[in-house]
């Protein structure tokens, strides 16, 4: 018999759903879609690339918003005062990538999402953001 019992700190629905990997996957999809667009001569395929890339960029924004507004709390902001500015720049970059077919804009988005991911990792013990990046690069 355990002397000290566990008390569960979980949500009724799902807990621990906050994960910058979601934003990173979509940012990578934006990058890869622009690459495919630039490689193709097929106009129909290129149109599909534009549509899909815009959808993915919007998803990056949404995943970042959820992290920004739901996950990050006052104590995080006090400890990491750069949080607001970082999320603002990252969501702006998602907006830029949405209307651009420039590979550099997509890379800038990935870099900022990675900054968010590393910040998130500092706030969550045991979370390895580098593993996320490594998996996507494989």
């Amino acid at each position: 018999m355990k002397f000290i019992k566990d008390v569960h700190a979980h949500c009724d629905l799902f807990c621990g759903v906050y994960d910058p990997a979601q934003a990173r996957i979509e940012a990578q999809a934006v990058y890869n879609t622009i690459h495919k667009y630039n490689e193709s001569d097929d106009e129909v395929f290129k149109q599909r690339c534009v549509i899909i890339k815009e959808e993915r960029a919007q998803l990056v924004k949404e995943h970042l918003w959820i992290l920004w507004t739901d996950y990050f709390k006052d104590p995080h902001l006090k400890k990491y005062p750069e949080t607001h500015d970082l999320f603002w720049r990252a969501t702006k970059a998602a907006g830029e990538a949405k209307k651009s077919m420039n590979q550099e804009d997509a890379q800038k988005l990935i870099d900022l999402v990675d900054e968010v991911g590393r910040l998130f990792a500092k706030t969550k013990e045991g979370y390895n953001y580098d593993a996320v990046v490594q998996n996507l690069s494989a």
């Binding site: 000290i4 566990d6 008390v7 700190a9 979980h10 104590p75 706030t123």
Partner: peptide
């Protein structure tokens, strides 16, 4: 009552494993 927090939903107030 003494309990050990199991899970992350009370972060950052109580981290996983914290005694309360």
């Amino acid at each position: 009552i003494v309990r050990r927090v199991y899970g992350h939903s009370m972060e950052p107030t109580y981290q996983n494993g914290r005694l309360v």
